[in-house]
């Protein structure tokens, strides 16, 4: 289905300074049994967020009221592991629109882009700046502008120019997805098959 158009955002951010956050942590396999895409946000980071009795674990960032916003900031190699798109769905359904890290696993990155969730890859140094700013003041905001491809720490004015494939950028800005594109190519694909 067409994805939501990506708009410029300015919000606080939620810090998750852990490396190699894998897709089994983002959404454990036992929550993959739905046949429709809905409600995955409830089980985002399930086993870090709730204990065995389903009580919130107070230390976990999503359970701390001082953190909020549409930006999730993770340690390097975010999204490693399984191809489950449910990982991107759960982050999006929870309300995040941007994930920031110094490094993303390939499949996760592709899944995020296909669902209107923007993966912003920054340098390790800049990532440290972002974590430091959130620690200093969890209410401070960050601005993400996809047209300009910039991620700005509003409090300091420090800015990072991130990269994105120009085709994917247009898809996100316009709310297009790859399926519409590929279906429009059926004749060309059939011609390839004849070769």
């Amino acid at each position: 289905m067409p994805i939501d158009k990506f708009k410029k955002i300015q919000t606080p951010a939620v810090p998750l300074p852990i490396e190699n956050v894998d897709t089994d942590q983002i959404i454990p396999a036992r929550f993959l049994k739905a046949v429709e895409r809905k409600g995955f946000g409830d089980n985002l980071f399930r086993d870090w967020r709730y204990n065995k009795k389903d009580e919130p674990i107070v230390d976990f960032v999503l359970n701390q009221s001082k953190f909020s916003g549409q930006i999730l900031v993770g340690g390097k190699n975010f999204g490693s592991g399984s191809s489950r798109e449910h990982a991107a769905w759960s982050i999006y359904d929870y309300g995040f629109r941007v994930v920031v890290s110094s490094f993303f696993a390939d499949i996760f990155k592709g899944n995020a882009l296909n669902n209107g969730l923007l993966p912003v890859q920054v340098s390790e140094e800049f990532l440290e700046e972002v974590f430091a700013q959130i620690e200093k003041d969890p209410t401070s905001t960050f601005s993400v502008d996809l047209v300009e491809q910039t991620f700005v720490i509003d409090a300091t004015g420090s800015s990072f120019s991130f990269e994105i494939n120009s085709y994917k950028k247009q898809c996100l800005l316009n709310g297009y997805d790859d399926i519409d594109f590929l279906v429009s190519r059926h004749e060309k694909i059939a011609a390839y098959e004849e070769q």
Partner: peptide, 8 residues
């Protein structure tokens, strides 16, 4: 491996 959007 691919995601579900890609399966589609």
């Amino acid at each position: 491996g691919i995601g579900t959007s890609e399966v589609e």
